[in-house]
Computed example of a mutant assay.
Amino acid sequence: MIQHMNLVFQAEGLSVGEGAFLMACCNHTDAKGYVIAHMQQIADEAHMSLRSARDQRARLEKRRLLKSGERFSPKNGAQLANLFRINLDLLASMKRKRTDYGPSLVEELTFDEGPAENPSSNPPAKSAAPPSTPPADLAPPLADLAPPPANLAGAGAAKSAPLLLPSSDPSSLPPRAGAAPAADASLRTAPVGERENEASPEGHNPSEAEVPQQRERSSKSAAAAGGRVVAAYAATLGRPVLNGTRAKLERQAVELLAQGLPEAWLCDRARELAARGWADLVQHAERSTAPIEQPREVPGAGRPGLPEWCGECGDGTGTAARLNPRFRKVGPEDARELCPRCHPNRVAAATA
Rank of each mutant, 00 (worst) to 15 (best):
Ser49Thr: 13
Asp137Gln: 12
Pro240Ile: 00
Arg239Pro: 00
Gln214Arg: 14
Gly154Thr: 04
Val106Asn: 13
Arg51Cys: 01
Leu338Pro: 07
Ala136Thr: 09
Gln213Thr: 05
Pro115Leu: 08
Pro206Gln: 07
Asp112Pro: 06
Phe72Cys: 01
Phe21Asn: 09
Ser171Glu: 10
Pro304Leu: 02
Ser172Lys: 14
Ala182Thr: 04
Arg176Thr: 04
Cys267Ile: 06
Gly203Cys: 03
Ser218Gly: 11
Arg269Ala: 03
Gln259Phe: 03
Leu142His: 10
Ala43Gly: 03
Trp265Asp: 10
Gly316Phe: 06
Arg322Phe: 00
Ala264Arg: 15
Glu297Asp: 12
Leu7Cys: 04
Ala125Arg: 11
Ala275Asn: 10
Ser207Ile: 06
Pro141His: 12
Ala150Pro: 07
Leu173Met: 12
Leu266Trp: 07
Leu50Phe: 11
Gly316Tyr: 01
Asn118Asp: 15
Glu333Cys: 02
Ser68Leu: 05
Ser132Asn: 11
Thr245Lys: 13
Ala320Glu: 04
Gln40Phe: 09
Gly311Ile: 02
Leu66Phe: 08
Ser186Lys: 14
Gly300Leu: 03
Pro175His: 09
Pro74Tyr: 05
Asn197Cys: 06
Glu202Gly: 10
Thr319Trp: 06
Leu164Ala: 11
Glu108Gly: 10
Leu14Asp: 07
Asn324Ile: 03
Val211Leu: 15
Pro131Phe: 04
Leu138Ile: 01
Glu250Gly: 00
Ile86Thr: 11
Glu108Trp: 02
Leu323Ile: 12
Thr133Asp: 14
His284Met: 10
Asp44Cys: 03
Thr317Lys: 14
Cys339Ser: 08
Glu108Tyr: 01
Arg63Glu: 08
Pro147Lys: 04
Lys32Cys: 03
Arg346Asp: 05
Pro262Val: 05
His204Ile: 09
Gly305Val: 01
Gly69Leu: 06
Asn27His: 12
Ser207Asn: 08
His204Gly: 06
Lys126Gly: 05
Ser167Phe: 04
Ser132Val: 04
Met94Gln: 14
Arg217His: 09
Asn324Lys: 05
Thr236Glu: 11
Phe111Lys: 14
Leu60Ser: 04
Leu242Asp: 14
Gln214Met: 12
Asp268Thr: 03
Ala24Arg: 05
Gly300Asn: 03
Ser121His: 10
Phe72Thr: 09
Ser288Cys: 07
Arg71Trp: 03
Phe72Lys: 11
Gly17Ser: 12
Ala349Cys: 02
Arg336Leu: 06
Arg336Ser: 09
Ser127Glu: 13
Thr289Pro: 11
Arg341Ile: 09
Met94Lys: 15
Ala43His: 10
Glu202Val: 00
Glu70Asp: 12
Ile2Ser: 15
Pro74Thr: 10
Gln259Gly: 08
Trp265Lys: 06
Ala139Arg: 15
Ala247Leu: 12
Asn151Arg: 14
Asp184Leu: 05
Arg85Pro: 02
Leu323Val: 14
Arg96Pro: 03
Glu255Ala: 15
Pro103Trp: 08
Leu249Met: 07
Tyr233Leu: 06
Asp184Cys: 03
Val192Asn: 12
